[in-house]
Amino acid sequence: MIYYFSGTGNSYKVAAQLAQSTSTKLADMSSVAVDVPVCDDAVVGFVLPVYAWGLPVFVEQFVKSLPRGVRHKYVYAVLTCGDDMGYADVLLRKALRRVGWQLDAVYVVQMRNTYVCLPGFDVDSPDVQQRKDRAFGQRMTHVATCVANRAPFDEREVLRGAWPWLKSYVLRPLFNKLLISDRRFSVDASVCSQCGACVRRCPLGNMRMGADGLPQWHAGKCTHCLRCYHICPHHAISYGKFTRGKGQVKINL
């Protein structure tokens, strides 16, 4: 079984290819979060994006809901990130340990940048995106081989980046406290076509269409995946002034 969470499609792409390579079933965390099934597979994987050098808030909640004390022969995680991951794997290992699960190995796959909600953060340039695309196939072949062989943890398989402790243990808590909120999301009524794509595709059901035909947030379940921002066909959604002039990525889910 591979449990995955994906906001803009990066982690889904990894999970789908890994499932095909290893003949494994997929389970979307956002679909099974209410009642996580007990998985008796010998090999269990988690595929998820790195948010602020840590875990998405939703994934933290999902891990807490896992059946406790279940033993598997091999548990691994594949983390996707645009640049680096800090100590996100350590945070995941600790979260799993609290429910009696052991994380045996971690792999990182560098994907397209999708975070656009702070100054200096934007989608990748075409050249950077092409470089990542070229490296993707080879990296996935390597990860699938390691999983098939139940390889142990290897520090060379992760991408911590500069100042990982500062990022994961100082900046990340501040980020979660100050920025993980849907309060700054808004829609430009002059551009919005009222197609409802953002509402239908929100993975956590955090949106609805208002009486005026425009999308609304504020259901208290936002994990800041930015799917609503990137999926809008008219680029009508913004996150305060942070996303002014920022790009979008194509959603493939």
Results as ranks from 00 to 15, higher is better:
238 S>R: 12
104 D>Y: 02
147 V>F: 03
169 Y>W: 10
23 S>Q: 15
58 F>Q: 05
185 F>I: 03
175 F>S: 09
176 N>R: 13
91 L>N: 02
119 P>W: 05
245 G>H: 11
93 R>K: 14
179 L>S: 06
184 R>Y: 13
180 I>A: 06
188 D>W: 04
174 L>D: 07
214 L>C: 08
119 P>Q: 10
59 V>K: 03
133 D>Q: 14
29 M>Q: 07
207 M>A: 08
46 F>T: 00
76 Y>Q: 05
193 S>W: 09
169 Y>L: 04
53 W>Y: 11
176 N>A: 13
10 N>F: 02
87 Y>G: 04
32 V>Q: 07
28 D>G: 04
24 T>H: 14
144 A>K: 04
108 V>P: 00
44 V>Y: 00
238 S>Q: 15
183 R>T: 13
14 V>D: 00
235 H>F: 09
245 G>S: 07
20 Q>S: 15
245 G>T: 08
215 P>L: 09
210 G>W: 07
132 K>D: 06
248 Q>G: 01
211 A>R: 14
232 C>P: 06
205 G>Q: 09
252 N>A: 12
239 Y>T: 01
186 S>Q: 13
51 Y>D: 02
187 V>T: 12
201 R>Y: 11
73 K>H: 14
44 V>P: 01
162 A>G: 12
184 R>Q: 13
249 V>S: 02
7 G>E: 04
38 V>H: 07
36 V>R: 02
63 V>K: 00
175 F>D: 09
237 I>C: 06
174 L>K: 08
1 M>S: 11
173 P>C: 06
12 Y>A: 07
235 H>S: 14
154 D>H: 11
239 Y>R: 02
188 D>H: 09
84 D>N: 15
41 D>S: 11
202 C>I: 03
184 R>T: 04
101 W>R: 04
188 D>S: 12
62 F>T: 01
1 M>I: 10
232 C>I: 03
186 S>P: 03
138 Q>Y: 13
172 R>K: 11
116 V>Q: 03
7 G>V: 06
